[in-house]
């Protein structure tokens, strides 16, 4: 997995330290710490992992291992409006792939990528637990149900 080289600001370092401290710098809480960090930064660049490593005294190789194991964690920044298409069984059989294709075409992105203006990113996920609404698309925290390929353009328009 490639990573973008960034430099943290002092307040970023302070924030990471605060998050770690809120879990008593307990190495057992690594996943919770990473969740909070990703919530704050939107993603988990190498530099964030290094600070977490120092605070929790967990080798940075281990942290990278955890991040690459769980698909929820990402090392590439998500867009301001992250678009996720559910590819769970129910959504899949009701045409999620065609919906995903339409998002790909409209945004000019592959899964895992972010638009150059940082506005949208595209990802697929497994079952959000709303199978009755299949196929389901999420943009940020908002859920769209029974999405057809024709709806894609209108959904994106809401965020223009």
């Amino acid at each position: 997995m490639s990573s973008i080289k960034i430099e943290l600001r002092q307040e970023d370092v302070t924030k990471i330290k605060e998050i770690c401290a809120s879990f008593n710098n307990d190495p057992q809480e690594l996943i919770n710490v990473l969740h909070k960090c990703q919530e704050h930064f939107g993603y988990l660049p190498a530099e964030v992992q290094e600070v977490v490593s120092n605070e929790l005294v967990v080798p940075v190789a281990k942290i990278y291992g955890v991040i690459t194991f769980y698909s929820f964690f990402t090392m590439t920044p998500k867009g301001k409006h992250p678009v996720s298409i559910c590819m769970g069984t129910a959504c899949y059989v009701r045409g999620a792939e065609k919906v995903l294709d339409e998002f790909r075409k409209e945004l000019g992105l592959q899964v895992g990528q972010t638009t150059s203006d940082g506005k949208f990113s595209l990802s697929s996920l497994r079952c959000v637990g709303a199978c009755g609404l299949a196929p389901v698309v999420m943009v940020g925290d908002k859920t769209y149900g029974r999405v057809a390929p024709d709806d894609v353009r209108n959904i994106l328009k809401e965020y223009e």
């Binding site: 940075v60 190789a61 281990k62 990278y64």
Partner: peptide
């Protein structure tokens, strides 16, 4: 307790590697 190596990735991409899959030379 050197912590240079960890299992990373999943499935066919799974491997034991240093952080960020950098070369050993840049690890601990």
């Amino acid at each position: 307790t050197v912590g240079a190596l960890s299992a990373v990735n999943r499935g066919f991409m799974a491997a034991v590697a240093p952080a960020f899959e950098q070369n050993l030379e840049y690890s601990t």
